[in-house]
Nucleic acid binder design. Structure first.
Length: 811
DNA sequence: ATAGGGTTAG
C-alpha cells in the first residue's frame, strides 16, 4: 500500500497524508482484522484525489484496492462526473452491482450538467424502475438542467412528482422549481411557490432566483421593486444577487438606483468579485455613464473581457461607434482574450457605418469565430440591417444551428429593406422549421403585415402571439396598432391603443397616420393634441402623419400652423416628405400659387413625392406650365413610371392641346412604358381573388357578371348615373357603360357580395387610385345592399357606409 | 460520495 509512484507523492501535500502518520501497529492490525481500515484510508485518498481533479491517480488507487465498498465506487464515479468524463463514469456505473440512490444521482447530475437531456431523463426513469427513490439531489440536478435549457414542460412533470412525493417543503427542490419557472418566463408560478415556501432570510439562492427571474423576464422595474423589498426585509445580497440586480438596472437605464446598489456593494465587501465588477461596468456603460464605468474598470486587477465587451456595447448604444472600434483595437493591442460576445458588439458599430464590415468579417473568419452562433447571428443581422440581404442570407444558410434570433434578423432585415413579401415568406419558413417565435420577431412580422395591409395574415399572427403566452411588449403593441390602423380596422387599433399601459411617440404616430389614411384627419389632429398633453414629444414622422392628415381633410390653416410649429417649437427641420404633404394640401385646395412658392422655398432637394403632389394639383387645376416642370422631373426620377406621362397628357387634353397630348403618349410608347393595369383583389377564406378590368378568368365569372348586372340595375334605381369621363374606350355610349361596369373594383365587390356573409364588411384592395365612377358606385352599393365596403387604393382608405364615403369625396 | 443562484449578443 506504500508503492505509489513519485509523481503522486510530489503532487500531494504531506501534512494531509494519512498513511505516514499512522503508527505501524495499525497496519498489522489491518492485515489481521481484514481490510476495513485499509478501505477507509484508501477511500479518503480517493476522495481527495477525485476532488482535486487527479482522477488518473484516483483510478490507480481504486484499481489497487483489495476491497471496495459503496463509498469507493461512488467517489470514483463522481470524480469522473465532475471532470465531465461521462463515458468512464458510465462504464464504472455499469460495472457496479450495488448502486444506490447516490450513485444514480451522481451520474444523472453529470448528464444534467452537460445538457444530455434525453440520457438524464432516461436514467431518471430507470432509477425508479430499479426501485431507488430520487432524492433532493436528483431532483435538484434535473431542475437545474430544465432551468438552463428552458424545458418548462419537463419541469412541470417534475413539479407533479414533487407534489406527489412530499418534496413540497424541501428548500432545495422548491428553490430549483422557482428558478426554473422564473427563467422560463412563468414568473407568476415562481411567485406562488416563493410565497408558499417557509420564509427564510438565509436562503439567498431563492431570493436571488427571484431577482434574476424578474430581470430575465424583461421586467427590470419588478426586479428593482423586489430587490428593495428584499433589502427592507434585511435579506443580504451576495456576489450572485448583485450582478442580477445590476442587469435589471441596465435594462431600464436606472442609473441612480444602480449607483445606490454600487454603494451597497462597497459596504458588502463583494466589490472585488469579477462578476460584480463586470456587471457594474455594464450598468454604467449602458446608462451612458462612461466615467463611472471607467472608474470601476480601473479598480479591476486583470483585463476582463466581459467588462470590455460591455464598454463596447455601451459606446455603440450611445452612438460612439468610433470609440467602440477604438476599444476593440485596444483589446487587440493588449493581447486580450476576445470571445464570442466581442464580435457582435463590434459588428453593431458597422451598422452605422464607422467600421468596415468586410474587414471585421475577415477577422472573424481568421480567428475562427464564424461558427459561433452569437457571432454568425450578429453577422446576419449586420448584413441585413445594412441592406446587403444576399450576404445576410449567405451567412444564414451556412449556419449549422439557426435559432429564433437568426431568423428574426433575416425577417427584420427584409422588412426594413422594403421586401415585405420576403419577410413574410421567411417568417412562414421559420414556423415550418419549428422555431418558436418570440416578441421581437412578432413585432417585426406585424410591421410587415401593416406595410402589406395583410389583414387576415396579420390577425392570425396576432392570435398566434396571444396563444404563445408571451408577455406583451411596447413594440408588439405598437406594431399591432399600426397593423390594424393601416389595414383599415380603426376600432381594433383603438382597442389595442386603449389597453396599452405605456405609450411612446411611435404608438401615437401610428394612430395619427392610421386615422389620416382612413379619411379621419380631424381625429388625427385630436390624437396629436392628446399626445402633446400626455407629455410625449412629436418627432419627424409624427409631423408627416399630421400634415398628411391635414392634406386629406383639406385643413389648410391647421396645416400651415403645424408646418411652422415643427421647426419653431420642436426644432425639426422639414424634409421632402413634409413639403410634399404641404404642396399636396395647397394643390388640393386650389392654392397652386402657395404650392409653387413653397416649392421655391425648399431647402432640401424635391423628391418624387413632391413632384407627384404638384403634378396631381396641376392636373386638377389645368396648370400646364407647372405640370410640365413636375412631369419632366419625374421622367428623370422614375423613368419607368407611366403616371407622369398619363397625367401630363391629360393636362394637355384638358386645356385643348390635343397634339401635345398625342405627342406625350407617343413619347411614352417609344420608351416602352406601359400603364400599369388596374387590379383589385379581395381575400375570402384565406384565399386571395384577383381581378383586372373585364376579367373573365375567375371560376365564378358567370355568377359575378350577372351579379354586376343586378347591382347596376339596383343602384340606378336609387340614382346612380355612370360617369363616362372615366371610361377608357372609344366607343358608343352603351359600350362605354359596359366597360365601366366591369372595372376591376366592381368585379371584386360583386364577388364580395356573392361569397361573404351579409354581416361581414367587404375589403377590397386596388393597386391604383380608385376610379371616380367606381367610387360613386361603391357609395350606392353600400346603401342598396346595406354593406360596409372598405376599399384601400394606392393612396388611402375609403370606408363606404350607408351611401357615404369616409373621404368625403375628397381624395 | 450526489443538489440550487450571477456578467456580455438580436
Amino acid at each position: 500500500m506504500h508503492n505509489f509512484n513519485s509523481k503522486f507523492l510530489a503532487s500531494s501535500h504531506n501534512r494531509c497524508y494519512p498513511f505516514k502518520l499512522k503508527p505501524f501497529i495499525h497496519c498489522i492490525h489491518t492485515s489481521i482484522a481484514g481490510s476495513y481500515d485499509s478501505t477507509y484510508h484508501s477511500n479518503q485518498l480517493l476522495n481527495r484525489l477525485s476532488k482535486t481533479g487527479q482522477i488518473d491517480d484516483a483510478q490507480k488507487v481504486f484499481d489497487k484496492m483489495p476491497q471496495r465498498d459503496e463509498y469507493s465506487w461512488n467517489t470514483i464515479i463522481s470524480g469522473y462526473v465532475s471532470l465531465g468524463r461521462l463515458v468512464e463514469a458510465k462504464e464504472l456505473f455499469d460495472g457496479f452491482s450495488s448502486r444506490s440512490s447516490i450513485t444514480w444521482s451522481s451520474l444523472i447530475s453529470g448528464y444534467c450538467r452537460h445538457g444530455c437531456e434525453s440520457e438524464a431523463f432516461r436514467l431518471f426513469r430507470l432509477m425508479r424502475l430499479e426501485g431507488h427513490t430520487p432524492s433532493q439531489y436528483t431532483l435538484g440536478s434535473i431542475l437545474r438542467m430544465c432551468s438552463a435549457r428552458g424545458l418548462i414542460q419537463n419541469a412541470e412533470l417534475i413539479h407533479g412528482y414533487v407534489v406527489k412525493n412530499g418534496f413540497e417543503s424541501n428548500v432545495y427542490v422548491v428553490t430549483g422549481l422557482v428558478d426554473t419557472y422564473a427563467k422560463c418566463k412563468h414568473i407568476s408560478e415562481a411567485e406562488v411557490l416563493f410565497k408558499r415556501l417557509e420564509y427564510d432570510k438565509e436562503n439567498h439562492v431563492l431570493w436571488t432566483a427571484m431577482v434574476t427571474g424578474y430581470s430575465q423576464n424583461g421586467d427590470g422595474r419588478k426586479a428593482i421593486e423586489f430587490f428593495r423589498y428584499m433589502h427592507a426585509e434585511g435579506v443580504e445580497s451576495n456576489q450572485f444577487t448583485f450582478p442580477s440586480i445590476l442587469t435589471a438596472c441596465s435594462s431600464v437605464s436606472a442609473h441612480c438606483f444602480g449607483e445606490q446598489v454600487h454603494g451597497c456593494i462597497v459596504r458588502s465587501g463583494f466589490g472585488g468579485n469579477v462578476y460584480v465588477q463586470s456587471a457594474l461596468v455594464d450598468m454604467y456603460a449602458k446608462c451612458g455613464d462612461f466615467s463611472g464605468a471607467k472608474r470601476v474598470l480601473e479598480t479591476m486587477e486583470d483585463d476582463d473581457v466581459v467588462s470590455w465587451n460591455s464598454m463596447i456595447v455601451g459606446c455603440v448604444r450611445h452612438n460612439f461607434e468610433e470609440e467602440a472600434l477604438l476599444l476593440f483595437k485596444k483589446m487587440h493591442a493588449r493581447n486580450m482574450k476576445i470571445d464570442d460576445y466581442t464580435f457582435p458588439s463590434v459588428l453593431n458599430s458597422c451598422i452605422v457605418g464607422s467600421t468596415d464590415a468586410k474587414s471585421v468579417h475577415c477577422l472573424i473568419i481568421k480567428t475562427g469565430f464564424e461558427n459561433y452562433k452569437l457571432v454568425s447571428n450578429a453577422l446576419v443581422d449586420m448584413y441585413a440591417k445594412t441592406g446587403d440581404l444576399n450576404c445576410a442570407y449567405a451567412v444564414f444558410q451556412k449556419m449549422l444551428e439557426k435559432d429564433v434570433i437568426s431568423w428574426t434578423s433575416l425577417v427584420t432585415g427584409y422588412a426594413q429593406n422594403s421586401s415585405h413579401e420576403d419577410s413574410v415568406k421567411i417568417f412562414c419558413d421559420m414556423r415550418i422549421a419549428g422555431v418558436r417565435p418570440d416578441q421581437v420577431v412578432f413585432a417585426s412580422i406585424l410591421s410587415a403585415c401593416a406595410e402589406l395591409t395583410l389583414l387576415e395574415f396579420g390577425k392570425q399572427v396576432h392570435s398566434d402571439f396571444i396563444k404563445s403566452g408571451l408577455r406583451s411588449s411596447l413594440s408588439v403593441e405598437n406594431s399591432l396598432v399600426a397593423m390594424y390602423a393601416k389595414c383599415g380596422c380603426l376600432d381594433d387599433a383603438d382597442s389595442i391603443f386603449v389597453s396599452m399601459h405605456v405609450r411612446d411617440v411611435i404608438t401615437w404616430t401610428s394612430l395619427i397616420v392610421g386615422y389620416a389614411q382612413n379619411g379621419k384627419g380631424k381625429e388625427s389632429l385630436r390624437f396629436y393634441d392628446a399626445m402633446v398633453s400626455s407629455g410625449t414629444k412629436p418627432d419627424f414622422i409624427t409631423f408627416i402623419g399630421l400634415l398628411f392628415a391635414c392634406s386629406h381633410a383639406g385643413l389648410v390653416d391647421d396645416g400651415r400652423v403645424y408646418f411652422q410649429q415643427m421647426s419653431k417649437v420642436y426644432g425639426i427641420e422639414p424634409g421632402a416628405e413634409h413639403y410634399a404633404c404641404m404642396i399636396d394640401l395647397f394643390g388640393r385646395s386650389g392654392k397652386l400659387d402657395e404650392a409653387k412658392e413653397l416649392l421655391n422655398q425648399m431647402n432640401v432637394k424635391p423628391d418624387a413625392t413632391v413632384w407627384k403632389a404638384l403634378l396631381a394639383a396641376c392636373r386638377v387645376h389645368g396648370n400646364l406650365e407647372l405640370g410640365e416642370r413636375a412631369a419632366t422631373n419625374l421622367f428623370v426620377l422614375e423613368p419607368m413610371n407611366a403616371m407622369p406621362y398619363v397625367m401630363l397628357s391629360n393636362i394637355y387634353s384638358a386645356v385643348g392641346k390635343w397634339d401635345g397630348a398625342a405627342k406625350i403618349r407617343k413619347l411614352m410608347k417609344s420608351k416602352g412604358i406601359t400603364k400599369e393595369p388596374g387590379c383589385s383583389w379581395i381575400e375570402i377564406n384565406s384565399r386571395v381573388h384577383t381581378f383586372i378590368s373585364e376579367d373573365r378568368g375567375h371560376p365564378r365569372a358567370a355568377d359575378i357578371y350577372s351579379k354586376i348586372d343586378e347591382i347596376i340595375i339596383r343602384i340606378k334605381e336609387s340614382g346612380y348615373v355612370p360617369d363616362m369621363n372615366f371610361s377608357l374606350h372609344d366607343m358608343d355610349r352603351e359600350g362605354k357603360e359596359v366597360g365601366l361596369a366591369y372595372h376591376s373594383e366592381k368585379l371584386a365587390v360583386a364577388f364580395g357580395l356573392l361569397a361573404s356573409p351579409q354581416s361581414a364588411p367587404i375589403r377590397i384592395f386596388k393597386n391604383l387610385r380608385v376610379c371616380g365612377d367606381c367610387h360613386s358606385a361603391m357609395k350606392y352599393i353600400s346603401a342598396a345592399f346595406n354593406r360596409r365596403i372598405i376599399l384601400r387604393d394606392s393612396n388611402c382608405f375609403h370606408h363606404f357606409k350607408e351611401g357615404e364615403c369616409s373621404c368625403g369625396d375628397y381624395w
